[in-house]
Design a protein around this nucleic acid. Structure first.
Lengths: 266, 266
DNA sequence: AAATAAAACGAACGCTCGCTCCATTTATTG
DNA sequence: CAATAAATGGAGCGAGCGTTCGTTTTATTT
């Protein structure tokens, strides 16, 4: 299903994994066909980037189990928090034994580390993409769209990192904060470029940049605001892809309109 | 110091406690002189509203200890989260024995309950106040100002509730969500009234309302964005009141400007 | 000053946690 | 088929948890 660029190799080098073609932003559907961090590939990436802490050798097994573990983690800890989730809960929820779980991780904290790593990777992809646009305004639109698409697809991951940062080491916590700074900086730079080019006008570029970032966060932190974004039992969006597509478009359009007003001249 | 409307009674009825005079919004300084949920009065309110779960009888003792407990809770759990904070941590931080702590609470969860209750109370005060303004625009300004003042004074409380909701019961979690809905609804109603009156124009009143609420949340969730808002050892703002005053004014002004643009006609 | 009540103390209890281990069974691979 | 890897499932470890309670200290009243 979906993209399925399955390279079918064990221990794939993580750097080459993202040399895949450019991500398409015409629609969420085309994004799904080109974005690498999803489905089997997503968990394979987790496996590749954390091989040293994983005892299971064959990617086939590890990938399947990592999917179970992470999915269950999101389900349980969205309600009660990561700290309150015991590995016995996790064992029950995944249907795996403690032993099986501990052959995919070396300690509980590893789960949080994996999530943090993937979100950071996804954010890097987002940042990289933004540099490709031809005009400033297009760059704006693409960047916002990419943010929305990626954080919709990886919503539980983004959500988890935001609320469970404090389960990570201080250094990791700082890095998460830095991700927000980077996002704000990046939008601010765009705005300043637009002001210099005479396309925009604003007295407070940082405030506008901050507003955008905060609205983008709101999208994945409070999915209940735009309801019915629940995923089905298999964690797929396909069944209601049209619906998701239009929700994203609406929210995207709202942000764009808002930014347009905030940066209007005169 | 500060307001000090000390009624010096035990078991004061909680409802009469907030019949105090109207809250002043001319400046943060005048807000501090009129807002009831601060200093001794704040902890007395906690005591009054949770007397049934508190063993300590004399308000004098309970109030002093509640202050220690809550202050320490904010300090510890801001770093490591409420779940990771053990009552032994709390005992160390407060200098109180386990027994002393347990004569102010009946179980750990009570601490989170107390915080949730105060934040809800503060939000209610905010909502009530907004109804007093004479013009729509004034109502806007007052409401935003009140939000900023209250959430600055009670920053650790608001912050704690946001990040530790999942330590509460499902019902309490729903109530917290409802608080956000109410805030958005309230701003949306103001906007719609302004549109009807021909003062504002917008295609998406809810988006504007949501943006305001999210920016107000950002203020107390990410104090590091506007730095140097740290309170001193005694938890007071007085030493740098001028600085706080101008930070709030700046942020308030930024929001107002933003809203003005978003609701501009033509 | 003595008597009474309230508050503070902190060792101890029962329990759950993260984590390990291992004999056994099941699946995969050469 | 033999050899290797994965998964099972539960017993068990020590640590640390929230909570209790008999005792001691402090405060208040008589």
């Amino acid at each position: 299903m979906t993209s399925a660029i399955d390279l079918s190799q064990d221990k794939l080098d993580s750097k080459t994994a993202f040399a895949s073609g450019p991500v398409q932003l015409n629609s969420f559907a085309s994004f799904l066909e080109s974005f690498p961090l999803q489905g089997e590939q997503l968990y394979r990436t987790v496996f590749d980037r954390h091989a040293e802490m994983i005892q299971t050798q064959k990617a086939r097994f590890a990938v399947a189990n990592l999917e179970k573990i992470l999915t269950a983690t999101f389900e349980v800890s969205a309600v009660s928090g990561f700290d309150r989730m015991s590995l016995r809960d996790l064992s029950r929820q995944t249907g795996m034994s403690m032993g099986a779980i501990y052959s995919c991780i070396s300690k509980k904290e590893d789960i949080a580390l994996m999530v943090a790593d993937i979100v950071r990777l996804s954010s890097e992809l987002t940042q990289q993409h933004a540099m490709r646009a031809s005009s400033i305004w297009e760059s704006f639109e693409q960047s916002i769209r990419y943010h929305l698409y990626a954080s919709t697809l990886l919503q539980p991951w983004y959500f988890f990192l935001y609320f469970e940062t404090r389960s990570l080491s201080q250094m990791q916590q700082e890095e998460s904060k830095q991700m927000e700074w980077d996002a704000i900086d990046s939008f601010e730079r765009l705005i300043l470029a637009g002001v210099d080019a005479g396309e925009f006008h604003t007295n407070d570029p940082r405030m506008v940049a901050n507003t955008i970032v905060v609205l983008l966060e709101d999208w994945y932190l409070k999915p209940w605001k735009t309801k019915s974004l629940e995923i089905n039992d298999e964690g797929r969006y396909e069944l209601q892809l049209n619906e998701v597509e239009s929700k994203i478009n609406n929210y995207n359009q709202s942000i764009i309109e808002l930014v347009r007003k905030l940066l209007a001249k005169g």
